[in-house]
């Protein structure tokens, strides 16, 4: 039985598999991040950024200032487990903009995180870690 996704990518099986793999990895990453007790909250946004192309931005709020580095390592590890073929931009933020229902206001989050991403691109945080 063919699914809607199969019909959409009927011309290219490889592309369909790749897209399904990304969607599953993205959903798995969301679930894993929710289970992390070492960060206060997390949000994952799939977007296109200049110079980087299609990318996944993961924003997290550290539990405390001194636990920011460990929280970052945990989030990066989750990204590597769920989307190993993709480099995730992990950014620590003070707060994640959300609606009252808890949904992430993705546009506002990227607006806020973009200057930090620019700084990270110039001097990667991983080196200082």
């Amino acid at each position: 039985m063919s699914t809607a996704l199969d019909e959409l990518y009927a011309h290219d099986r490889f592309e369909a598999d790749e897209q399904t793999g990304f969607d599953e990895g993205f959903a798995a990453l969301e679930r894993e991040l929710l289970e992390l007790p070492c960060v206060r909250e997390c949000a994952v946004v799939h977007t296109r950024l200049p110079d980087l192309g299609e990318t996944v931005v993961v924003a997290f709020v550290p539990v405390a200032g001194e636990q920011e580095a460990s929280g970052r390592r945990a989030v990066l590890a989750a990204c590597e487990r769920c989307l190993p073929w993709l480099f995730g931009q992990v950014v620590a933020v003070d707060a994640i903009p959300r609606t009252a229902a808890g949904d992430v206001r993705a546009g506002a989050l990227i607006d806020r995180a973009l200057p930090q991403i620019a700084r990270d691109l110039m001097s990667p945080v991983a080196m200082s870690d």
Partner: peptide, 12 residues
């Protein structure tokens, strides 16, 4: 476990 439409892409 996920959403039916897959991972939404934020256009900017």
């Amino acid at each position: 476990t996920g959403r039916a439409g897959g991972a939404p892409l934020l256009e900017r």
